[in-house]
Every structure is written in structure tokens, then in C-alpha cells.
Amino acid sequence: MSTPSLEERIERLESIDEIRQLAARYSLSLDMRDMDAHVNLFAPDIRIGRDRVGRAHFKAWQDETLRDQFTGTSHHLGQHIIEFIDRDHATGVVYSKNEHECGGEWVIMQMLYWDDYERIDGRWCFRRRLPCYWYATDLNKPPIGDLKMRWPGRQPYSGTFHELFPSWKEFWADRPDKESLPEVAPPAPLDKFLETMRRGTPAPKIRVR
């Protein structure tokens, strides 16, 4: 494997910064309801559902969703891990803590996004954002127990916060023997951290809220 040149390393750093700005712009444009700014963060041929393609369809869907469900929102980003597939494609995980004004209730949410990024015509875009939820509940009602997704006027249901990573179920399914030291797997390659954690599992099916 050849050592990347200085130009390639600088390009990689610039791409990382642009992708992180992409996630920040997503939150700001969504919270400020600038639908044109928002949908232009996605690939021009973004797919909406089974048979709709393009930013215009995405804008119509987002507009309807936001008007029907939320008076206001605020998305607060946490850690952001980015790994490159090649020069123009990358994947990433972004934590997000969100607040939603839903009529007479104030719903807080903890989630992460599993992202696919693509550089198109020199600019990084979202190819896909997969929202994986841990909980959503009224501010005054801690989401203890199962079925942590608790929106006003809906039956509680499970999120997909842990389904991306098999380690969650493995951790709770197998208690180590305290009489012996556990085995430690070798470190993941530097640019394969997320891929190693996923272990080839398929993306979970997301329930549209």
C-alpha cells in the first residue's frame, strides 16, 4: 500500500471538514425550516419512498412532515465518525440529541444517524441518512423500560438505536466468566472502525414516524 501524498492527505482533511459541515447544515436548515437549503444537501437523485426521485419530492415530503408533526425543533450534534470508501464516497455516524415542540407536549429524543456520503460535482452530499432512535418522550416522562419511542397520540414502539451494531445484544446475551480474563480482539484498521463494529450486518428497517 503506497503512502498518501501530501496533496491527498490535505484533500482528505478538507473532505472530512466538509462532511462535518454537511451534518451541521442539515440541523440548522431543518430547525430554521429552510427547505431549499435543506434538500440541496442531498444528492439530486435522492429517492423518496419506492417510486419518487429528486429534491422536489423530498422537499414536498419534508414540508408536509414538519407542518403536521412539529411546531419547532432543535437538533444538537455530538460525535461524528467518518470513514472513506474511496475518494468520492464515505460513511459516517453522527449522534444527535433533539428537542421537539409537538403542540402541547415537549418531546426530547436521543438518536444517531448512519450516513452515506457522496461527492457529486465537487461537493459532498448525503446519499442517504438512516435515523436510528433510542428514545423519544415528553420532557417530564423519563423513557424507562421497553418501547422507548413515545410520541403524543401514538402507541409506544421500539427504536433502532442499537440495531446497527451486534455488540449490544452480544453484551447482554453472554456474561463473561469472572474466573478468567476475556479475550481481546485485535484493533480494527484505522479506516475500518465502523465497518468492523457493524460486522456485515444489514441496515435496520426504520419505522416512519
Rank of each mutant, 00 (worst) to 15 (best):
Y113K: 04
V93I: 15
E195I: 10
I85V: 14
A136Y: 03
I16G: 00
D68Y: 02
D116W: 02
N40V: 02
P44R: 08
F58H: 10
L13T: 10
E195R: 13
M32Y: 06
H76R: 15
R128A: 09
L6Q: 15
R175W: 11
E195W: 05
E118S: 11
V184C: 12
M111Q: 13
P186N: 07
E7L: 15
R12Q: 10
P204R: 12
I46A: 10
E14I: 07
E8D: 13
T91R: 14
P202T: 15
W124Q: 09
M32A: 13
S29R: 08
S15F: 02
A173E: 11
R154L: 13
R207G: 00
G49Y: 05
V39N: 00
R154Y: 04
K148E: 04
L112T: 03
H57F: 07
E163R: 12
E64M: 08
R209M: 07
A23T: 09
D121M: 05
A188V: 07
F70C: 11
W172T: 09
R175D: 06
T65Q: 13
E83W: 09
I206A: 00
E118N: 02
G78L: 12
E195Q: 13
L13K: 07
E170M: 10
Y157N: 00
R12V: 09
E101A: 14
L164A: 07
R9W: 06
F161S: 00
D86Q: 06
C125E: 01
L194E: 08
E163C: 03
C125K: 06
D138T: 04
D177Y: 00
F70Y: 15
A203E: 12
Y135R: 05
W151P: 00
R207S: 01
A60S: 15
R119H: 04
T160W: 05
R55I: 02
D174V: 07
V107E: 05
R9N: 09
E14Q: 10
V94A: 09
I19E: 00
R129H: 14
D115H: 14
D191R: 13
E179F: 10
T160Y: 04
E163K: 09
